[in-house]
Design a protein around this nucleic acid. Structure first.
Lengths: 322, 322
DNA sequence: ACATCTCTTCGAACCGGTTCGACGATGGAC
DNA sequence: GTCCATCGTCGAACCGGTTCGAAGAGATGT
């Protein structure tokens, strides 16, 4: 490559990195050779010499109670954002657990890591603290000391739904949440949503109950709501895959939208009529996580928790209290 | 590292790779130092010297009509299988198109690539042919000359469903397929399933119709079936996300399972009663793809198409014709 | 006792970049 | 016309492994 352009290897490097000024004529000559040869610098050599691999790791959850399409949206947005910073993404699954992190960090395969689906008390957090590998968490653990975290402000999302329904005059609302297992392992986002919901309900003087729900228990939950809480006129659903079955089950009891006002938290699946919802901005959160990680890779860390402000979009599924 | 163990760097390398015999005493000493120091070889240096990165690329589709959970199952199984061969997985999205392949190949970032969701006439195929980068396709393009492909035998899957229903005495069956866009871009698996279905139906003398279907057109499709094909008693559904809504829509017309016998192709989503189905063995296909890729990386290529034989599992959704 | 062979280990070259110090050329100030 | 700063480029060291040839130590055969 350098020979083809008639310059030294270092000159080629400087042309590519721009770290020293190179005359316009030489730059042109080098670029022409690059095009002519289809030259691509050897990634291994580059990472060896520069101590930068230009790769970040993405740890993706595998749990069955994680909603896969949402996880995928995060993953895709992370890859896209990383490419914009000239980085690639190495995919790690939960399979190896914390050891996977140690491995990629120890062998200098990656410059940083993004960890998805962080729990309140996550085994990976102490490992990250010990590794001095730049990292960003998507999700918020209990102790955020020294960590960089990004997430949707789920408490605000839960609250926004309550305020929307209260503004419409509803006085008794129910929250249908994630499967019980999600709460049992203390996943931050689920807890915080419920907390935001309950707090806002108390503040507005709204009667509120909350109900975990998995695909198999939809009918049971609806039975409870119809039987024991007949006064409920507003429903907040934080459980994307169950929205459809839930609405059908309610319809069987004669409760249809928007007589029953429904707000969804998260993307609404196709095949369901458009619902008033707080969207989950996976793309923004993913891109933000990558941006923060790049900052950390470049310079000193600025730890902190970034919460994306939720936006409620009004659609046809909510109406004033009948 | 070498100093800590009191040996030369080359000795350490031979202990790790096992490419030359090293005395037991020395091996033990080196391993002790490795443990004591938590030593991990530098991935970049290794790839530079050995011309192997121990990383494979996985090109994952982004299209909205691809069923995301299935894609994810493939991805996870590929990562797991790759780890068993001491390889990591670099995630490429469709975003960069063929250029992404050129980039990772040219910079020697990866030893091979697995391409998912291959279309009949796929733009990436000629690129792969030109790259001399070991590759395995998940999916089967039109011209497989020189390629290594893995897939479920979808034609056999479609046929198996027909045979199952015909064995139960059904004489008029319908096939509910993927969204129209999937057929329009000539995705192999969808076409082959329909072909297998039609061929087997002709062979068994069964009256057969097939109907593309997207989440938005479920009711429409059901309307057509109930109205124009009232004699249909067997249904084959090759469209996972629509199974639930489809059955509900039929129920509204008084057609319930198993009076209407239903066979699904692909995993059945939770929240739907267990269906007789041909499962989509994503885990096996992913693992097989990785295995074939490793063979190609190690030795000479053995191109060819590997089709995984489908297995039909009988559950409560199919019964003899009433 | 000497030539040979095997087993284990080392040294040196090499993989392909990056980075720093230095050197020659050029230009401006005095 | 000399002195010094600036600009553009080069050479060499280095990043941390892998690989091959060869050397040294014992074992074996004669």
């Amino acid at each position: 490559m350098a020979r083809h352009a008639g310059v030294s290897p270092s000159t080629v490097s400087y042309v590519l990195s721009g770290k020293r000024s190179i005359s316009e004529a030489t730059t042109r000559r080098v670029r022409e050779s690059i095009d002519a040869l289809g030259y691509q610098p050897h990634a291994g050599a580059r990472s060896l010499a520069s101590r930068r691999s230009n790769v970040i790791a993405l740890v993706i959850p595998l749990r069955e109670d994680v909603h896969v399409p949402v996880a995928m949206r995060f993953a895709v947005s992370v890859v896209t954002a990383a490419r914009a910073f000239d980085h690639d993404v190495l995919l790690l699954t939960q399979g190896e657990g914390p050891d996977g992190l140690r491995r990629v960090a120890g062998s200098a395969m990656v410059d940083g890591v993004i960890v998805m689906d962080v729990e309140a008390d996550d085994a990976r957090v102490p490992v990250l603290r010990s590794l001095d590998l730049p990292s960003v968490l998507i999700g918020v653990p209990e102790d955020t000391e020294g960590l960089t975290c990004v997430d949707l402000d789920f408490a605000a999302a839960g609250a926004a739904c309550v305020h929307h329904l209260a503004d419409l005059g509803h006085t008794e609302v129910a929250f249908v949440g994630q499967p019980p297992s999600v709460y049992e392992r203390r996943t931050g986002f689920a807890e915080r949503t419920v907390a935001g919901f309950e707090e806002a309900a108390a503040e507005r003087g709204v009667v509120a109950t909350s109900h975990p729900c998995s695909p198999d228990t939809v009918r049971e939950v609806v039975g409870t709501l119809v039987g024991e809480h007949p006064g409920v006129t507003g429903l907040i659903v934080h459980n994307e895959p169950s929205v459809g079955p839930l609405l059908e089950a309610f319809a069987e009891h004669g409760r249809t939208v928007p007589g029953l006002s429904v707000v969804a938290i998260g993307p609404v699946p196709p095949g369901v009529p458009p619902l008033t919802s707080v969207d989950l901005p996976a793309e923004e959160v993913g891109a933000r996580a990558v941006g923060l990680l790049m900052d950390k890779i470049e310079g000193p860390a600025h730890p902190g928790v970034t919460l994306q402000v939720p936006r409620l979009t009004t659609r046809q599924s909510t109406a004033p209290r009948p």
